[in-house]
Design a binder for these strands. Structure first.
Lengths: 145, 145
DNA sequence: TCACAACAATTAACATGTTAACGAAAAGAT
DNA sequence: ATCTTTTCGTTAACATGTTAATTGTTGTGA
């Protein structure tokens, strides 16, 4: 009899939402003063790590849907955080790169962000923290397994 | 030196997003034919489990923000899935209850939803599944600990 | 009882999530 | 070469996430 739904208190989707809420709260607090959103922060993080990327790759690595990224890129371009140029080899592609102003936001919050991460490791314990990441990866359809 | 940000491939926020994406995909597929969204499904699930609830409690149990629930409730009322009545004892409060049509959506998909859950348990293994829920609960600020 | 704080819910404004339709450029087929 | 298909990205439309301001009620103290 697998015909029963789990109580909403033990529901995986709801647990994921709540965990995300808990994890993002301090990060959002940190970002409030910068005037950028959590997604814009993710875009900066990815660009800072990988350098200039085309839109598809950036959307994939930042876990954003295409239409969202289009809008986010427009906003960030206006703010001067990224540049967007057409690839001359393949004129369908857009190449997006982080600007000095964008990199400065990363640099200015590197320590604070690292402390937030350290806080979660302390809450869970290093071992649990790593296992959590592994378990989450098993649910990710895009993960190489 | 805790001054380094984790690679975005081992970022907890991004891992949570991707896991959620993986978990919700089959649920969204199931809901497509019903014409209701994932959040509306959550509202029905909670109401079906707990019965009539005031807006605050419902928002809390379904992990929805107040403004979102206000809009969702309006939509669901128009669809005839819930009823919304003012509490005569405290005229600030709204009482929300599931209708027969709403309950029918739950009943019609109970088996299918249970199979989806069973699939995730099979993917992770029963033990990992339970531990994942426990770890996620540790990140939830609202959890009783 | 009257002014004021506290509370429940809604509304407003902006950003993102989600799906579908669309436009432009490149790749393939005939 | 021309036509079709595929790919990359944008636009459109609607629903939700998020924060702040607002409305209607209740509770409280002078």
């Amino acid at each position: 009899m697998t015909n029963d739904l789990p109580s909403t208190t033990r529901s995986l989707p709801i647990a994921l939402i709540r965990a995300r809420e808990g994890v993002m709260a301090p990060i959002r607090d940190m970002l409030t003063e910068t005037g950028i959103t959590e997604q814009q922060w993710r875009v900066l993080r990815v660009l800072s790590e990988y350098g200039s990327l085309d839109t598809s790759t950036l959307a994939d690595r930042a876990s954003l849907l295409f239409p969202s990224l289009t809008r986010i890129a427009t906003t960030m371009r206006k703010k001067g955080l990224i540049t967007q140029t057409r690839d001359e080899g393949d004129r369908r592609r857009q190449l997006i790169a982080i600007t000095a102003d964008g990199q400065k936001i990363i640099d200015d919050h590197r320590t604070q962000a690292a402390q937030i991460v350290a806080g979660f490791k302390a809450t869970l314990g290093e071992e649990n923290y790593e296992q959590l990441l592994d378990l989450l990866a098993m649910l990710d359809p895009g993960a190489a397994e």
